[in-house]
């Protein structure tokens, strides 16, 4: 009985993050209809994704301590945000690339991608509207 009470209390106290699916979006004027998971990883890990000759996408990221950022990187790369942060420090301080510029939240991401033809970003699906193009969906059960 005592154990049942302890387990019940623990279940109640456990933080439950139920995120919607995350969608990767670009500006409709980019001419890009879809991307592979490999290409998205390359873009967000400072590598050349080889999309179209001469086309460069500028990635935007969520704040370093945000839940949606942690989810995005875990679902795409399988790694926690701390590993991604250390990886970007390596790229930055070897002069290879600068980390993606940060935006405040989902709404700011939507606005940034909508206003910048070269931008690529990601956000929770519930914030999606018709002004951006979805190029990849990271489903919640991935």
């Amino acid at each position: 009985m005592r154990y049942q009470i302890v387990i019940t209390v623990l279940i109640i106290l456990l933080p439950v993050y139920v995120l919607a699916d995350i969608v990767v979006v670009v500006n409709p004027n980019s001419g890009i209809a879809e991307l592979t998971r490999h290409q998205i990883i390359d873009i967000y890990m400072g590598r050349n994704p080889g999309i179209k000759k001469g086309q460069v996408l500028q990635p935007f990221d969520h704040p370093l301590n945000s839940v949606v950022r942690a989810e995005f990187y875990y679902k795409t790369t399988g790694k926690p945000a701390s590993v991604i942060n250390a990886y970007w420090a390596r790229l930055l301080f070897t002069g290879r690339a600068s980390p993606p510029r940060l935006v405040e939240d989902n709404k700011a991401m939507l606005k940034t991608v909508r206003e910048n033809p070269a931008a690529i970003g990601y956000l929770e699906q519930k914030y999606l509207n018709e002004h951006v193009t979805v190029v990849y969906t990271l489903e919640n059960n991935e």
Partner: peptide, 17 residues
């Protein structure tokens, strides 16, 4: 930076390894 090793260009950046 000398690029002979995996860490060689960022051996001063402790946060990166």
């Amino acid at each position: 930076g000398i690029d002979l090793f995996m860490l060689s260009e960022y051996r001063n950046v402790g946060y990166a390894y």
